Amino acid sequence: MASKKAIIKKIQIVLTKHFDSPQAAFNFFDKNGDGKLSKAEIVKLLKEAEISGFIRGLVGSTLISGYDKDGDGEINWKEFKKAIAEMAKDID
């Protein structure tokens, strides 16, 4: 199983290589345009990051449980920004 650091690095690569900003990445993966990332939308981001299918669901659930501060089961833009900032700290 990939380490936390390896997963975070893969996510960062997708966000920095393919998008001009975290906001652009968020908007791209927010397929229904509701201003939130559902677990399915997060799993698509993880697939883009080449996280194996076996652990995408686990990582998606972990991201939601760790960063969903308003308890709605999704990640809004504010929560996404916080997650990106914390991931950047974890990789340094």
Rank of each mutant, 00 (worst) to 15 (best):
E86S: 06
F26N: 00
P22Y: 00
Q12A: 07
I42K: 05
I64A: 07
E86R: 00
G73C: 09
K17G: 01
K47S: 14
Q23L: 06
D90E: 15
I75M: 04
A83T: 04
V59Y: 12
E86A: 03
D34Q: 01
Q23N: 02
E50G: 06
I8R: 11
W77N: 02
D92H: 14
F80N: 04
A85C: 01
L37H: 02
K82D: 07
E48Y: 14
D92T: 15
I8D: 02
K82L: 02
S21R: 02
K69T: 12
F54G: 07
I42P: 00
L37D: 09
V14G: 03
N76Q: 03
S61T: 14
K78A: 11
K31I: 11
V43N: 10
I8H: 12
A40Y: 05
E48R: 04
F29E: 06
H18E: 14
E48G: 08
M87L: 06
D72Q: 08
D70F: 09
I55L: 12
G35C: 08
S3T: 15
I13A: 14
G60V: 07
S65E: 09
D30M: 05
L15Q: 08
M1H: 13
E41S: 02
V59K: 10
F28S: 11
I91H: 02
T62E: 14
A2S: 12
S52C: 04
F54A: 12
S61C: 05
S65N: 14
K47L: 13
I55S: 09
V43M: 08
T16S: 15
I84G: 10
D20K: 13
K5P: 06
E48F: 15
F28P: 01
K10S: 14
A88W: 01
T16C: 06
N76D: 15
M1K: 13
I75F: 04
K44Y: 11
K82C: 04
F80W: 03
D30F: 03
F19G: 03
V43P: 00
K5C: 03
G73S: 09
G60R: 08
D70S: 07
D34P: 00
G71L: 09
L37E: 07
S61F: 00
L15H: 06
W77R: 03
I42Y: 08
K39A: 08
L58C: 01
G33C: 02
F54I: 10
L45W: 11
I8K: 10
K9S: 14
N76L: 08
E48A: 15
S61I: 04
I13W: 01
L46Q: 10
Y67A: 13
K36M: 11
G71Q: 01
